[in-house]
């Protein structure tokens, strides 16, 4: 399989946030700013690459009946490793993302990729799938975080664009998360429809 093709697939065709609509909880919960969204995306991507590779490597050794519990153990292991490293070396980001770090375990994206891709492909292909999907997730979270931060506080990555007092606070709060994501998915749908209409 073409490696670039796999990455493109994860970024656009099967974008986990805008197309597959997976992993909504961290998408909504951690994107109050562009930086937080990116941090969460990268953390998930790291775990996804590792778990994809590990699962692909041991896929022949696991009896099919217990494969799901095995996948969960592998994913939970990498999540805990990440959790400990973040606590040690990035304590402030760890504090901001809070409970969403251990909850990467139940992010449907990871188990979904393990079942749909890693259990059927080679280690190297699985790694590229992890990169593609992880990158697609990171981009989506960063975009959502940027939009919310810009509308809510008037800055992007903490860099002020317009005065904070003109910002609409609701976009930083819970309702804004739902509404911004809804509008972004609609926009993505619209672009894809245009593509298919023309083709």
């Amino acid at each position: 399989m073409n490696k670039l093709r796999i990455i493109y697939n994860g970024l656009v065709t099967e974008n986990p946030t805008f197309v597959l609509l997976l992993g909504m909880c961290p998408t909504l919960g951690t994107t109050s700013s562009a930086f937080n969204g990116m941090g969460m995306g990268l953390a998930t991507m790291g775990v996804l690459i590792c778990s994809n590779m590990a699962i692909s490597a041991i896929k022949r050794l696991i009896p099919s009946k217990v494969r799901i519990p095995c996948y969960i153990v592998v994913i939970a292991t990498f999540v805990t490793v990440l959790q400990m490293f973040m606590q040690a070396y990035l304590p402030s980001l760890y504090a901001t993302l809070g409970i969403f770090i251990p909850l990467i375990v139940v992010n449907c994206i990871l188990l979904g990729r393990a079942e749909a891709f890693a259990s059927r492909h080679t280690v190297i292909d699985s790694m590229f799938d992890g990169i593609g999907i992880g990158f697609g997730f990171t981009i989506a979270l960063t975009m959502l975080g940027t939009v919310r931060e810009f509308l809510g506080t008037g800055s992007i990555f903490n860099y002020g664009i317009y005065p904070e007092t003109y910002g609409s606070l609701v976009f930083i709060l819970a309702p804004g998360a739902f509404i911004a994501l809804g509008l972004m998915i609609a926009l993505f749908n619209r672009i894809r429809q245009k593509h298919t209409d023309h083709a």
Binding site: I62, P63, V66, V73, V74, T77, T80, V81, M84, F85
Partner: peptide, 22 residues
């Protein structure tokens, strides 16, 4: 037996890895 062993082995490896990182 094989199912129990494979799940057990994976959990043990995970625990060892985590203990080391910890």
């Amino acid at each position: 037996l094989k199912m129990v062993i494979s799940l057990g082995v994976i959990t043990c490896i995970s625990a060892a890895l985590l203990a080391w990182v910890y």
